[in-house]
Design a protein around this nucleic acid. Structure first.
Lengths: 125, 125
DNA sequence: TACCGATATGCATAAATAAACATATCGCTA
DNA sequence: TAGCGATATGTTTATTTATGCATATCGGTA
């Protein structure tokens, strides 16, 4: 419990990112899009979700287009015009994708956190 | 086993990155530096490790400096000059850091892979 | 002591990524 | 039918990050 590392270990923060690509290494789904899709599902609006996450609408629009391009069918159901200007919802497939990613994260998050704690404790020895 | 997702799922590749930062969000240790440190340990040379990983010496040198700056003590033992031009080895602390990161990855890699496979299978349903 | 190959480091350039800006379209509502 | 707010999308500008280039130092060996 008294190594050279000791006094710095409490300042260390863990980060990780999980994503998936097509064979051409183009990112098609990952933590960022997952979060965005979840928030769109919740808010019913791309713009609202972008505002909350601090992403630009332009960027998000392009990113989401990539997923749909890869799968070849829509994950989002968009509607323009109307009293509220328009809205966006997830299709059934969109929801399935998000739920599957939810489960993925649920399975690994605690493992990674636990591994990190062991890492820190190992350095404290 | 026959969803809209089915025919694309075999093309999906998993990626993930784990790293750590200081309180200021400056990256101090992660998969890239881990790999590099391991290879330096194996090769006894920064240059040789850079060549093998395809990183520029310039970049690597700067990156490794960040870790040492954060911890405040050397993880690398460098030597300039000599018949072979010089060489680099890990200090005891450097080795401890690498071993701890080895264990971290050993603990999470299979979990993540397994989670990914479940993710794919879930979408196949 | 001149040379070689690796470490050391500043600086300028390029490539990748994101942000900003600019419009256009759409369809309800006043 | 004029206006509003969100979706749609091209273009330009910034920011970030990596690469490239240049040069210096070091210390065995020929």
């Amino acid at each position: 419990m008294e190594t050279k590392f000791s006094d710095k270990l409490s300042d260390i923060r863990l980060h990780y990112k999980i994503w998936m690509s097509d064979a051409n290494e183009t990112g098609i789904m990952g933590d960022g899009k997952w979060q965005m899709l979840k928030l769109i599902e919740e808010k019913g609006s791309m713009k609202a979700a972008c505002d909350e996450l601090g992403y630009t609408y332009r960027r998000t629009w392009g990113n989401l287009k990539k997923i749909e391009k890869f799968f070849g069918f829509p994950l989002l159901e968009k509607q323009r015009g109307g009293s509220d200007g328009g809205h966006t919802a997830l299709t059934e497939e969109g929801k399935r994708l998000v739920r599957a990613f939810d489960a993925f994260h649920k399975a690994v998050d605690s493992q990674i956190q636990e591994g990190f704690e062991k890492f820190i404790n190992e350095l404290k020895k």
